[in-house]
Simulated scan of single mutants.
Amino acid sequence: MDNYRLSEQDRATLQYRVTTKLREVILRGEFEDGERLVQEEWAEKLGVSRMPIREALKQLEVEGLVRIEPRRGAIVTPISVEDIEEIYQLRALLEGEAVEKSLPNLSKEHIEDLENICEQMKDLEVNEHSVAEFMRLNENFHKILYEGCTWRRIHGLIETLWKGIPPYTPSLLTNHLDESHQEHRLMLEYVKQNESEKLKEVVQKHILRTRDNLIKYVVKSKKQES
């Protein structure tokens, strides 16, 4: 419970590490819903100034894990298993539909971009730096897949669902990065083969597998803290 202090090596990626640490603490259930996250206390626990804590809270507010209130500061609103189920089930439905409609409109350049992303993912070694890069590549890969969908409203709905925990799940599920990469390779192959139904199916399975693993992570973390 008290071993939060970051090492000197961690401080090389200070902002990322502070945000990741606070995200993990919230998802582990160390805060009650509605409890204050006091900047001064966590700055001391992590051995940092208040500035990276303040910046981390801004990011966590975007993710829906805290809300910033006047005179009260950061109030924790931890994501629940039900929230995860809702977000990822909707993502599977919408992104599956979007990639199926997108495929006929993907260009040679789109396919080359997907290929390049897969190659970059393959070359990453799992560490704090590579996980941050994997998150960026993962989000770009998914966006390219459904970029060709001509349904305007579905893009807005998907973007809303991505404004939260989804972009950051690789930082929590590092043991599953290889599996995720293999699924991305399979998506790329179906794009090249122009197999829209198979592409839709693997995208949905990929999202739902992530949902299941994230739920296991949250449940296990809360049990360890109880």
Rank of each mutant, 00 (worst) to 15 (best):
D2F: 09
D2I: 10
R5N: 03
Q9F: 03
D10Y: 07
T19S: 05
R28Q: 06
R28G: 03
E30A: 06
F31E: 09
D33Y: 15
D33N: 15
E41T: 01
V48A: 00
V48R: 02
P52D: 07
I53L: 04
E55W: 11
E63Y: 03
I68E: 11
A74T: 04
T77Q: 07
P78Q: 04
P78C: 08
I79Q: 10
E82L: 11
D83F: 10
I84M: 12
I87W: 07
Y88W: 10
Y88V: 04
E97M: 13
E100P: 09
E100M: 13
K101V: 08
S102A: 12
L103I: 05
N105P: 07
L106N: 04
H110R: 07
N116E: 15
E119V: 11
E125K: 12
V126S: 06
N127M: 06
S130Q: 07
R136W: 07
E139Y: 06
N140V: 02
N140Q: 14
F141W: 02
K143Y: 12
C149K: 00
C149M: 05
Y168M: 10
P170E: 01
H176Y: 11
H176F: 14
H176W: 12
H181N: 07
E183A: 07
R185Q: 14
R185V: 12
Y190K: 10
E195S: 09
E197D: 14
K198I: 08
L199A: 08
L199F: 09
V203H: 01
K205M: 13
H206C: 12
I207R: 03
R209G: 02
T210K: 02
R211C: 10
L214K: 04
I215E: 08
K216L: 13
Q224Y: 13
